[in-house]
């Protein structure tokens, strides 16, 4: 099963990420976000980062997690390809990502500026979990 599918949006872009667990859907949403910009099969996991974020519910936590990864990637000039959630609680999470320099990669989609709350959803499904998120590009 694919980790995510692309949502159609007139101006921006979005994904529905899926996973067997809430942790997995968070990791797959992060994968989907960077996979929209780069062909992640070409990105080696050379540099790592660690993030810790807070949020009042799973949806807020998802935005905080994805936003923190975008910020790290922008500041360090990286494209992330691997994601690992270490601790997910109702109020906060910690996790890591690994990737390599973005400047030497070809963009296959527009750079994602930010993660929006518009149409945001994190839901349990018969197959596991699904997260819907729209990005500003």
């Amino acid at each position: 099963m694919s980790r995510y599918r692309i949502l159609s949006h007139t101006a921006d872009t979005g994904i529905v990420a899926v996973g067997a667990t809430l942790e997995e859907v968070f990791e797959n949403a992060a994968f989907g976000m960077f996979d929209l910009m780069f062909d992640l099969s070409l990105v080696p996991p050379e540099e790592e980062c660690h993030v810790e974020v807070e949020g009042d519910d799973p949806a807020e936590l998802l935005v905080a997690w994805l936003s923190a990864l975008l910020t790290e990637a922008d500041i360090r000039g990286l494209a992330f390809c691997r994601f690992r959630l270490e601790g997910l609680r109702s109020c906060c999470l910690s996790g890591g990502a690994a990737g390599s320099a973005a400047a030497r990669l070809i963009l296959r989609g527009p750079p994602i500026k930010a993660v929006t709350y518009h149409g945001l959803a994190v839901e349990e499904t018969p197959e596991g979990w699904a997260a819907r998120v729209i990005f500003d590009v």
């Binding site: 936003s67 910020t71 922008d74 500041i75 930010a114 500003d136």
Partner: peptide, 13 residues
């Protein structure tokens, strides 16, 4: 650029 994106992200949260 990223500065504006981060300001909006911070305050929306």
């Amino acid at each position: 650029r990223g500065l504006g994106h981060q300001v909006c992200t911070d305050y929306l949260a």
